[in-house]
Every structure is written in C-alpha cells, then in structure tokens.
C-alpha cells in the first residue's frame, strides 16, 4: 500500500529565486501538450486496459449497486436501515472517525519526531511504521488479539469490545498520516521556524501559526485515507471483534449476509459504504483543489 502525496506537497514558486530545492514540477516533467495522440499499438493497449478494468472493477461494482437497489428505493432503504445494518454502519463510521482523529494527531507527532529529532533506534521505528502496510490483515488481527485479546499476557481483554476494534483499526491505519506528513515536513525549511522564533514566537506559537498551516493539507489527506481504510477494514477486526451484534463492523455484517445467502441485503449495505467512500474521495479532491489554490 502506498500513499501518493505529490498533490498536497507545497511546491516551490516557479521562478528561479528559490534555488535551494528545485521542485519536481519545474523540471522536464511531461506536459499535456507533449503527449502524443494514440497510435496503433498504444490504442490497442488502451482498449485492452479499458476492457480489463471494466470486467474487473466497473461491472462488478455496478452489479453491487444494481443488486442493492433491485428492490427499488424502499427495498434498498429497508435493507440498509435494518437494525443490524444500521448498528454496524454506525459503529464503523464512529470507529473510523475516532481512528482518523487519533492517528491524525499521533501520526503528525510521529512524523515530526522522525523528521526533526534524532535518537538511537529511529531506523527501527521507521521500519515498524511500515509493518501495518506489509502485514496481512488477518495476521495483524491475530497479533493484536494475542496482546489485547482473551489470553493477553498483560491482562487487557478487549476481545469482543469496541476498544478492541479501535486498536485494530489504529494499527492498520497508523502509516497513512505519518507517511503523508513526513515528506511535507522534510520539505519545510527549518529557517522558517527559526525566523518565527527570532520574531518572538514561542515553540507552540511557531507550530500553530507556521508549521501547522503548511502541513494541514497533508494531515487531512492522510486522515481521509485512514478513514476510508477503516471504513472498509475486515481482516484485522475479524478475530478481535467476536462478531457479536454490538461489535460487528460493516464489512463483517456484509460478509455474514453473504454467508446467509442474502446477496441483496449485502449489496444494499455495500452500496451505502460505497457511497460514503465516494463522498470522502470527492471531499478530499475538492479539499486538495482548494488547498492547492491557496498556495
């Protein structure tokens, strides 16, 4: 899993005055006018890609929406607002929100420490940050269940409880904010902070008024990605949640509907989740455009 932050990183001004850090975009990057029209080979390539994406992504997702709304709006409404469905969606949204806020704060803090501090073992922390991206989700679930589950060696039992779900989601979404904020902090010259200090700003004021405005777009992007991931998370939650009615996240609910043969019920709830994802992505892209215009 990777996070692309080129869109949110503040790019330097295009003039030659800022000579220290040539921005990626001022180099020979391909402009649209340089791009060639399609030829025979590339046209065929595009055709194959479009068919492949249609079969793999577009048609199946459309099938979910069609199936979900097959019973008309009332059927969709009935299936997606059943007591279990609603409680699963509510739990998922609440947990995802909580997780994105917590990891926005902790991720920013960790990114700051990784960029601005140096200490023994920093490389190890860097590797640990990437583990949730590389680890299979079921293994992540097992790992957390073994420490915070029923046989916890530290006596914490969050099995079948909301803290358990929260901890699993915190684990899998840990890298998002760290990895989006880190490059922006790296590109932020320390002399700007020093200038603020020499003008009389305390470290807290400098952070709030100088650093935070610069990294906010990255924090928001990271948090939105974390939210999206948490909304759809399944593997890491399965073992620790216990799948009781009050600890079932949306993905688990959909899975149990599939298992019970209720594909239309599953599709209705899935459609709700897809809608939320689309809204989050659209909001994020609007925010990026707005932040980009602000410079």
């Amino acid at each position: 899993m990777t996070v692309t932050v080129a869109e949110v990183a503040p790019t330097g001004p295009p003039d030659a005055g800022n000579s220290r850090r040539p921005s990626r975009r001022t180099r020979a990057a391909a402009r649209n006018s340089d791009r060639a029209p399609l030829g025979a080979v590339s046209g065929t390539g595009l055709g194959v890609i479009v068919i492949w994406l249609s079969l793999l992504v577009l048609l199946p997702l459309a099938a979910v929406v069609v199936k979900g709304s097959a019973g008309g709006f009332s059927g969709f409404w009935h299936a997606s607002t059943s007591k279990e469905a609603l409680s699963a969606i509510r739990l998922t949204v609440l947990c995802a929100l909580a997780v994105s806020v917590i990891n926005a704060v902790m991720g920013t803090l960790i990114a700051w420490v990784l960029v601005r501090d140096s200490f023994w073992g920093k490389r190890i922390i860097e590797v640990l940050i990437d583990i949730p991206f590389a680890l299979p989700t079921i293994v992540a679930g097992l790992v957390l269940n073994s420490l915070y589950g029923p046989h916890s060696p530290v006596g914490v039992n969050w099995y079948a409880s909301r803290p358990g779900i929260l901890v699993a989601l915190l684990f899998v979404t840990l890298p998002f904010v760290v990895r989006t904020v880190e490059p922006v902090l790296l590109a932020l010259e320390t002399d700007v902070e020093e200038a603020a200090a020499s003008l009389g700003a305390s470290p807290m004021t400098t952070f709030r008024r100088i650093v935070l405005p610069a990294i906010t777009p990255a924090i928001v992007s990271g948090a939105a990605l974390a939210f999206g991931r948490a909304m759809g998370e399944y593997g890491s939650v399965v073992l620790i949640s216990g799948q009781l009615p009050h600890t079932e996240v949306a993905s688990q609910y959909i899975y149990s509907q599939i298992e019970n043969g209720s594909l239309s019920g599953a599709s209705a709830t899935a459609t709700v989740l897809l809608l939320i994802s689309v809204l989050v992505l659209a909001g994020l892209s609007l925010f990026r455009r707005w932040a980009g215009r602000r410079g």
Partner: peptide
C-alpha cells in the same frame, strides 16, 4: 536566552518567508 526572547532581527539566505 532562547531566540524568541533575544529581540534580534534575523534575515536568512533563503528568505524564510511564511508562504501561507
């Protein structure tokens, strides 16, 4: 004494402009 209480003006080679 930390920089913020020295009351010195400091000008940097790369301007250190507050971009936002």
């Amino acid at each position: 004494v930390p920089a913020q209480r020295r009351n010195v003006g400091f000008v940097f080679q790369h301007y250190a402009a507050f971009k936002h």
